[in-house]
């Protein structure tokens, strides 16, 4: 059993985007804050800190979860993927490219989490229909786009992938 006193700092190792990061944190530090301010991975955004807006969504063991509703100490032993982790070394991922092609973003603040959630969706359901895409993204708020071009982006990325699959 490990016990950390209030305001005491503890050393933890997080597996983020395939790399181990050892950082010192207070147990109360939210995963979102550690990812952003200790690891410098600022593509994860914080919008409401109560799990509603979805901007801080990251993949935990491949599944979308809110990094604002998890303490960093709890993320030990899990694989965390942020937007930086799905971005290829050069160019864009198929989903990222689809978002650009279909104007699936305006201010870009909700975008990394939209893309991560969509990644997870397409891994689970490679050929979703529009209703499935809308349902999967219903926990990711966007104030700019009215969602239509986001949905188009995800559907097109799925279509492109299955076309490639068929070849």
């Amino acid at each position: 059993m490990e016990t950390t006193k209030a305001r005491e700092v503890v050393q933890i190792t997080l597996q983020v985007n395939g790399e181990a990061h050892t950082v010192e944190v207070e147990p109360r530090m939210l995963l979102a804050d550690v990812i952003r301010h200790k690891l410098g991975l600022t593509g994860t955004h914080v919008g409401c800190e109560q799990g509603v807006c979805g901007a801080c969504t990251v993949l935990v063991d491949g599944e979308p979860q809110r990094s604002c509703l998890m303490f960093a100490v709890q993320a030990q032993g899990h694989d965390i993927t942020t937007i930086e982790g799905v971005t290829p070394e050069s160019g864009l991922s198929p989903l990222q490219a689809a978002f650009q092609k279909h104007h699936g973003l305006q201010c870009g603040f909700c975008t990394p989490a939209m893309i991560l959630t969509s990644e997870a969706l397409l891994r689970k359901h490679p050929n979703p229909d529009e209703a499935q895409v809308r349902e999967a993204l219903s926990g990711n708020l966007c104030r700019c786009t009215g969602y239509q071009f986001i949905v188009d982006s995800v559907l097109d990325a799925a279509a492109q992938a299955s076309k490639k699959e068929g070849q």
């Binding site: 059993m1 490990e2 016990t3 950390t4 209030a6 109360r28 939210l30 303490f71 100490v73």
Partner: peptide
């Protein structure tokens, strides 16, 4: 909106 400090216990079982 940041949580107040708390003692954190991580039991093994």
């Amino acid at each position: 909106m940041k949580p107040a400090a708390f003692e954190y216990v991580r039991p093994d079982n």
